[in-house]
Design a protein around this nucleic acid. Structure first.
Lengths: 237, 237
DNA sequence: AAGAGTCAGCTGCTCTAACCAACTGAGCTA
DNA sequence: TAGCTCAGTTGGTTAGAGCAGCTGACTCTT
């Protein structure tokens, strides 16, 4: 009865006092007095809020209002996908489809509207991808950066974060769950095509380029071995 | 040091033992023994997992693997939006744009592909909306049901849940944060247009119908008074 | 014999009190 | 002045006791 309330009351405290991200919360003893609960209960509430990214706890320093990133969502999504996969559902494929649905819809409204600096940055990223592909290094980082930079142009922080969150969840799960046969050169070519299409301002071409990119990933996914040997659903943060 | 680990180890336990949603977890004493931690620490870890929807705790009964719904994500998103709004950001508008971006992209691929039973159900919903509009009753429920039923046809549970989550977050925040001038008849008309467009199989028309719907909501949002009187960021569940 | 009431036992929930560990900053020392 | 040390703050962890919700078997009544 009390526990659920404590969380709500702490959230209410944050809102009422207009505490911004990074602002310090009352210390545990202060919260005990304010909420009229034992230290234990207060801590459990804080832990739950921490798990939601609402609060950030620093040992020996204090508790602060969290940055409220979508990190907890990634955790939850990743875990959900892993368990679903183990139960024989196509959860990973669904996650990929979710990304595809969003990105195909979004890239078309980006076509021709991306400012030159962003295009340059994307160009540089694709070049870097080429280098890495030649070296045989992993493309994950640059791929993530490419997608992040691309949708930054939408001028909607929330939207960008959601897209990145889905990217993170997908890659974390697919890395741990399936053996993906890499194919760097094709990936590079597809990203360059996406970039060119966006630059040209041709919405349909851009959309098709994204769709092609995802089709490639999906194919790799479906043709991959389950590789279910050693489970490790999550890496330590 | 230990606390973060405990969560991971409990998650690992769920994965390793292939526990499905609803399956019982070890009791607190058993977890204490298994994890080699005190009761308190175990409980804090469980509370955090509960906040993420990974675990479900039933007083006097036991702890179980949770349904891993996106409810926690709604919580987090809603809170984030509320605090952002108070800080003068257009967080609520961003949330609405996020929904619009997703739905415009998705409705086009639904056009002409929705099975007849779903169309009938949508028809019934719009009729019900008409009734309620005439009575002056709230449209929220039927609106939610309409959008949920619409995207059910995508055959992607995750996608549907994400859309519903965004719907929930948006409506919860907008209900608490701004005074929205209702306009039931226009809303009804727009939903009927969406339905007709989808039924006709005309992708572009469907997309435009959705866009029109959101444009209407956005207008109401921007023209509304802040209504910042009595904050209540979240209702008790 | 069938039904309702009761109680013992599980479960998780809350509290108290003590100590451990990380960090800060004032004061001391070289 | 530069560096160290140490006291005081903060959160982290443990222990043990009692409270509260639920289940199932046992008993008493009908």
């Amino acid at each position: 009865m009390a526990a659920r309330d404590l969380q709500e009351r702490i959230k209410k405290l944050i809102v009422d006092r207009r505490l911004a991200s990074g602002a310090p919360l009352p210390t545990e003893p202060e919260l005990m007095a304010f909420l009229g609960a034992s230290r234990n209960s207060v801590r459990e509430a804080l832990k739950a809020l921490q798990a939601m990214g609402i609060v950030e706890i620093r040992h020996g320093f204090g508790t602060y209002v969290g940055r409220m990133s979508l990190a907890p969502m990634i955790e939850g999504l990743a875990f959900r996908t892993v368990t679903g996969h183990h139960r024989g559902e196509d959860s990973l494929l669904q996650l990929l489809e979710l990304r595809e649905a969003m990105e195909t819809g979004l890239v078309s409204r980006l076509a021709g509207r991306l400012p030159e600096p962003d295009l340059v940055e994307l160009e540089a990223l694709v070049d870097r991808m080429d280098q890495r592909a030649a070296q045989g290094t992993g493309l994950a980082e640059t791929d993530r950066a490419f997608h992040a930079t691309l949708y930054r142009g939408l001028d909607n922080v929330l939207l960008s974060e959601v897209l990145e969150a889905f990217w993170d969840a997908f890659h974390r799960v697919s890395r741990d769950l399936v053996e993906v046969p890499q194919d760097p050169r094709i990936t590079c070519r597809q990203h360059r095509e996406i970039l060119d299409a966006v630059r040209s301002g041709d919405s349909l071409r851009a959309e098709e380029a994204i769709r092609d990119h995802f089709r490639h990933i999906r194919t790799r996914l479906l043709s991959s071995a389950p590789a279910d040997t050693n489970l490790r659903p999550n890496e330590p943060v």
